[in-house]
Each structure stands twice: as structure tokens, then as C-alpha cells.
């Protein structure tokens, strides 16, 4: 952790052109971007997407194949609103990839859990897991049916796919973490991304049931390369941009203890 070198030329901006836009719901859209410069990007790593004149924001792509990059963005404030106003043919600037993604090199049964737009790096991970031919279940937790993002895509990858809605409008009713508790025993690894409350609950479940997990956390990312200190995970000294955003249970348990 943090010991190894890093090629900081990833800080150079590059760009791509929007080829296609998908409206998932009122507040979430996906953008397919044809990139100008292939840069290796593992699932769970993030880019900083820049709207010149506004800010740059961290995003974990929901798909990448070296030429096509898909980002899935929830409207939250000025910059994500501006991203939502982008059209087909527009140019988008970004740099990266930054940080450590999900490691899926071990053979085993994977439980993939995405909450809200947190499903974004999870579905990209699902593509990789399919490539490796491992067994996996894809679980997405949302408020209501119309918020669901990648259920069809996960099914088309041939994964067991479960949608959990808080209001019961589709799939299983309840909190995604309650569903996970029922099935967690059947899996070797859990990979998760979503709201903080969900992540902490998943960590607790994984510790309780002895399942190794990797969870992707958020913080205010500014420099992206581990020098400005703005993205510290709670008061651990760990940096979301450089040590994370994906942390494994070993590290999380050591630093977060009883959180």
C-alpha cells in the first residue's frame, strides 16, 4: 500500500467523444465515450472528468474496453448537472485512471453488490468476472423499480441477477443488505459499492460471516494522487484516491476496527 511507484503522467488530461447517451432515470444517465487514447483502467479505478469552466469530478466507469468507456452519472450538484446536459458528439475531458480497483484474480464465487449509482464499477467488474469464467451473483439495491440500472445487462452476461427495491415495486422488497445477509454464506468474496451506510453494513456482515470483501468508498477527491490529503477515509490516514477507492476487509478491519 502506497509503497509503489505511480506513473503521474496519468495526470495529463485526455479526451473522448460522446457516442451515445442512455437515460436510466430522471437523475441518472450513462454516456458511452469513444476515447482518444487507450489507458488501462481496471474495474473500480476512477477517472476525474473535467468540464472546462466548472470542476472535475471523480467517476468510476461502468464499462471500459480500451476504446469505449461508459460512465454512469447521478445528478447531484453543478458539475454532474453540467454532465447531464452534454450531448452526443460533445467532447469530454478526463484524466486517470486513479487508485486501486477490484481485484478479481482469485478463483471463487463472487457476490457483487451495487447500491444506486454505486452499481457502476460493479457491473464493469461483472464483465471482467465473466471473462475469467468465475461464478458470480449480481445484486442491485435501489429505492424503486425505475432506479434500476444494470439488471438486464447482468442477466445478459449470464449471471444470477437480483434486484432489491426498498418499496417492493419490483424484485425483492427491502434493504439490499438484508438480502445479502441471507445469501452471503454461499460465497467466497463480496465486492461492493454504494452509499456509506450500505458499505459499513456489508463490512460488518463480511466480518461476521468470514467472507473476504472489497468495498469502494467515496470522499472528496481533489488531487487524485495522494498528496493533498483531502480524501482521507474517516480518521484513518488512508487516502481514498491512492490507497482506495477499493479497500479490502483486511485493511478496513485493521483501520476502522469497530466502526
Amino acid at each position: 500500500m502506497y509503497l509503489t511507484g505511480y506513473d503521474i503522467s496519468i495526470l495529463r488530461f485526455t479526451w473522448g467523444v460522446i457516442e451515445d447517451i442512455l437515460n436510466h432515470s430522471k437523475s441518472i444517465k450513462s454516456f458511452n465515450i469513444r476515447v482518444r487514447e487507450p489507458r488501462d483502467l481496471d474495474p473500480g479505478q476512477f477517472i476525474m472528468l473535467w468540464i472546462p469552466g466548472l470542476e472535475e469530478v471523480p467517476l468510476s466507469p461502468s464499462y471500459y474496453d480500451g476504446s469505449l468507456m461508459r460512465i454512469t452519472v447521478m445528478k447531484r450538484g453543478p458539475t454532474t448537472e453540467a454532465i447531464h446536459r452534454l450531448r452526443i458528439g460533445d467532447r469530454v475531458f478526463y484524466r486517470g485512471p486513479f487508485g486501486n480497483g477490484f481485484k478479481v484474480s482469485n478463483k471463487g464465487r463472487y457476490l457483487l453488490v451495487g447500491g444506486g449509482y454505486g452499481a457502476s464499477p460493479i457491473i464493469y467488474t461483472a464483465h471482467k468476472i465473466r471473462e475469467y469464467g468465475y461464478e458470480a451473483m449480481y445484486v442491485e439495491g435501489v429505492k424503486t423499480e425505475s432506479d434500476a440500472l444494470f439488471i438486464d445487462e447482468a442477466k445478459s452476461l449470464g449471471l444470477d441477477t437480483i434486484l432489491v427495491t426498498e418499496d417492493g415495486s419490483s424484485g425483492i422488497k427491502g434493504l439490499v443488505t438484508d438480502y445479502i445477509e441471507e445469501v452471503i454464506n454461499e460465497y467466497d468474496y463480496l465486492l461492493g459499492c454504494g452509499p456509506e451506510g450500505m458499505l459499513l453494513k456489508l463490512l460488518e456482515l463480511c466480518n461476521r460471516y468470514g467472507v473476504e470483501c472489497q468495498l469502494s468508498f467515496e470522499a472528496i477527491v481533489k488531487c487524485g494522487v495522494g498528496i493533498c490529503g483531502s480524501c482521507e477515509l474517516y480518521n484513518t490516514g488512508l487516502l481514498v484516491c491512492r490507497d482506495g477507492p477499493v479497500f479490502d476487509s483486511r485493511i478496513l478491519s485493521r483501520y476502522l476496527g469497530g466502526v
Binding site: I8, L11, R12, M48, K222, V225, C228, S230
Partner: peptide, 22 residues
């Protein structure tokens, strides 16, 4: 609070930063 992002720029011979004394 410091400045808005981008606060860091890559140049061939180093880095530029404008963190804004956050």
C-alpha cells in the same frame, strides 16, 4: 475550503498546484 478542482496540473518537468491553502 481551498480552491475548486482542478487543483493540480501535470507538466513535463513537475506539477502545478493551486490547492488554495485548504
Amino acid at each position: 475550503r481551498g480552491y475548486d478542482t482542478p487543483i493540480l496540473a501535470y507538466v513535463k518537468c513537475g506539477l502545478l498546484n493551486a490547492v488554495g491553502l485548504e
